Amino acid sequence: MNTTLVCSGGLDSVSLAQVLAAQGRLSRIVSFDYGQRHRKELDFARACATRLAVPFHLVDLSGLGAALSGSALTDDLAVPDGHYAEETMRVTVVPNRNAIMLTVAFGIAAANGDTAVAAAVHGGDHFIYPDCRPAFTDAFAAMQRAALDGYADVALEVPFVHATKADIVAAGAGAGTPFAQTWSCYKGGARHCGRCGTCVERREAFHLAGVADPTDYDDADFWQAAVAAHAAGGA
């Protein structure tokens, strides 16, 4: 099975790239410039494709950023600090982002004769992002079967959809993922901030997985207070 991978350059998608490559199934990497405020993650996606010796497709959807307004990832809005599962993190939703990207990726896969499209959505995303939930991925897979009926047979692979971030760290470590060559932070600074939701989630995941975290954070200890505050709020 030849697989097109949607890759942001983050820990999850780069880990999935390593897993697929180890299985001999990774055929290409597709990334998207959708007008996000911080595009440095795209450099990490490109580096992943170079390292794994597969074609890299960077799709220019930069005009979408202005149209899909209201997100801290596309507009000049502050990215909140704290745990990823806090209500405040909803400001990072870009409406329909995964549906748009996956649709394009399926077209690329079909055009190149690939038999699957893989995405690294995971269980920790379910609270915040509706287009990361199993109900969405199941429905999207069915829609694509209809969209390509009689032309191509392309499956949707979401192996982490019921997994935790710690599970992904463990799987990535097993496949030799160079975690230092991944980018998660939503603030786009010189280093990971250590305080935004995705940094807190990243740091917590390494801790839970029992894997050394090579990431250079501006605030490497903030995650503990954020996790404790979230736990207390949910008690």
Rank of each mutant, 00 (worst) to 15 (best):
S184P: 04
A175D: 06
K165P: 04
R195P: 09
A180T: 03
C193D: 12
G176A: 07
R191D: 08
C199I: 09
T164G: 14
R195C: 14
A171C: 09
F179C: 05
H192L: 08
T182H: 00
T198E: 04
A173R: 13
I168Y: 09
F160S: 00
G176E: 14
F179L: 06
G188R: 06
V169Q: 12
T182C: 01
A170G: 11
K187W: 03
C196G: 04
A180M: 03
F160E: 00
T182A: 02
W183F: 05
S184K: 03
Q181P: 02
T198F: 09
T164W: 06
W183T: 04
F179P: 08
F160M: 00
T198V: 15
A180W: 02
D167E: 11
A175Y: 02
A163H: 14
G197M: 04
G194I: 12
K165R: 09
S184W: 00
H192E: 15
C193P: 10
G197I: 05
A166N: 13
G176N: 15
S184H: 04
G174L: 10
A171N: 07
Y186G: 00
A163W: 11
D167P: 11
A163V: 01
V200G: 10
P178S: 07
Q181K: 05
C199P: 06
T177C: 14
D167I: 08
T198N: 10
C185G: 07
G188M: 05
Y186S: 14
A170I: 12
C196H: 15
G172Q: 00
G189H: 12
R195L: 13
V161D: 05
G188L: 01
A170Y: 12
A173D: 15
F160Q: 02
V161K: 00
A166K: 06
K165S: 05
P178L: 08
V200C: 11
A171S: 14
F179V: 03
H162A: 05
V169N: 13
A173V: 01
A166R: 12
T198L: 11
A163E: 11
G189M: 06
C199W: 07
G189K: 13
A180S: 10
V169A: 10
F179Y: 10
R191N: 14
G172L: 00
W183N: 03
D167V: 05
F179N: 00
T177V: 09
A170W: 07
G197T: 08
T177N: 03
G189S: 10
P178I: 01
T177Q: 02
V200L: 13
R191H: 15
A171M: 11
A175M: 01
K187P: 07
V169R: 15
A170H: 13
K187D: 13
A180P: 03
C196K: 08
S184C: 06
G189L: 11
Y186N: 00
G176C: 10
C193A: 14
G174F: 05
K187T: 14
T164L: 02
V161S: 02
K165L: 09
T164N: 06
V161L: 03
V161H: 02
F179D: 08
A166I: 13
R195S: 09
G194F: 11
A180N: 04
